[in-house]
Simulated assay, not measured.
Amino acid sequence: MTRTTTTTRRTLLTAAAAAALALTLTACGSDAMSGMDHGAAPSATGHEMSGDMPGMSHGPDGMAGMPGMAHSTDGLASEQGGYRLDGTLAGNEYRFTVTGPDGKVLTAYEPEQTKEMHFYAIRSDLSGFQHLHPTRSADGTWTAPLAALQPGDWRMYASFVPGAGSGKGAGLVLSRTAAVAGQSTPEPLPAAATTSTVDGYTVTVAGAPKAGAAGELTVTVARDGQPVTDLEPYLETYAHLTAFHAGDQAFAHLHPETKVTAQGGGPALSFHAELPKPGDWRLFLQFQTGGTLHTAALTLNVAA
């Protein structure tokens, strides 16, 4: 093969490659050279270029998850994964519904810790904590009878597991704010502490969870300096622990790890803790003895 023939072939190959590249850039659009961002252009499967697989659903942060998988949430959104919370506060009664991805009021729920719905109310200064299990009518409307609410801004949380829709089986926490008329006087947040006393019981919390990381808290219950061993089951566990972040009222449920036995619970209880943000969190521990429910509260500082 002559040098001229070789040079000619190389020239033709280079030209062909350049033409192919030009066609590719034209098909992709003028933004192809800026990170290949195609906006909302549909893919070959008809889904947006978001990395989704068919059947995935989105929370408000755009994160995708498979059906049945719980979405990461701080409980501050009123809508997530296609489910929306709507409610009205009338006096000391909060009435609300959850609308599903199909646009219809949700009437199917799966029990979580024996209840279809866990409802929480707390004022913006993290005072006035209430944890209720409201009643649901046939049309899907929930009614939560609250104790007296002090004037100020409140947040109402609905924690539930849908029994229908694309998020069936995945735990969700949705919330909305509500204003109570009157002169509002914020209560200062109590300083961080490891102990709290309620109804003669002393609750001690040990552990140092870090923001955004899985950790463990150990709660010990005593009375008159003696360990308590007669804790009664409450919601399929010996204690229920929830937390709210100072400032934005982000919500977290700390899951119990101590198994219920026939002998009674205590004095030490373990909880799986995942607190997403650093700063002060107000913890509310609910436990039962002699048929009476007790609620202990303390402030926990979480490091970054």
Rank of each mutant, 00 (worst) to 15 (best):
R3K: 13
T6V: 12
T7P: 01
T8Y: 13
R9W: 03
R10Y: 01
L13V: 12
T14M: 07
A16H: 02
A17L: 12
L23N: 08
L25H: 06
C28T: 03
A32Y: 04
A32E: 01
A32C: 07
S34K: 10
D37I: 07
A41V: 06
H47C: 03
G51N: 04
S57H: 06
H58C: 04
P60V: 07
G62R: 04
G65P: 00
A70S: 10
A77S: 11
S78I: 00
E79F: 03
G81A: 08
G87D: 02
L89N: 01
A90N: 13
G91H: 03
R95F: 05
F96P: 15
T97K: 08
V98H: 05
V98P: 03
T99G: 04
T99V: 10
T99A: 07
G100E: 10
G100I: 08
P101M: 11
G103F: 14
A108T: 15
Y109D: 13
P111M: 07
E112P: 08
H118F: 12
H118K: 13
Y120A: 09
I122D: 10
S124R: 14
D125E: 09
D125W: 09
D125A: 06
Q130G: 05
H131Y: 04
L132F: 03
R136A: 12
G140E: 05
T141W: 01
W142S: 03
T143H: 00
Q150A: 14
D153S: 10
Y157I: 07
A158W: 11
F160L: 04
G163R: 03
A164M: 08
S166W: 02
A170I: 11
A170Y: 11
G171V: 05
G171D: 06
V173A: 05
S175L: 01
A178D: 13
G182M: 05
P188S: 02
T195V: 09
T197E: 07
Y201E: 02
T202G: 01
G207S: 11
P209H: 11
G215S: 07
E216I: 06
L217N: 04
V219G: 02
V219I: 09
A222G: 02
A222Q: 12
D224G: 13
D224T: 06
Q226M: 11
P227E: 00
P227N: 00
E232S: 00
Y234N: 08
E236K: 14
E236Y: 14
Y238W: 05
L241W: 09
T242I: 13
A243Q: 10
Q249E: 13
A252F: 12
L254T: 08
H255C: 06
E257V: 14
V260G: 04
V260T: 08
T261H: 04
A262S: 12
L269W: 10
F271D: 15
A273T: 11
A273V: 08
L275C: 11
L275D: 10
K277R: 15
P278F: 15
W281C: 11
R282E: 09
R282M: 15
L283F: 08
L283W: 08
F284K: 06
L285S: 12
Q286T: 15
Q286K: 08
Q286S: 14
G290C: 06
G291C: 05
G291P: 10
T292N: 15
A297N: 11
L300A: 12
L300N: 09
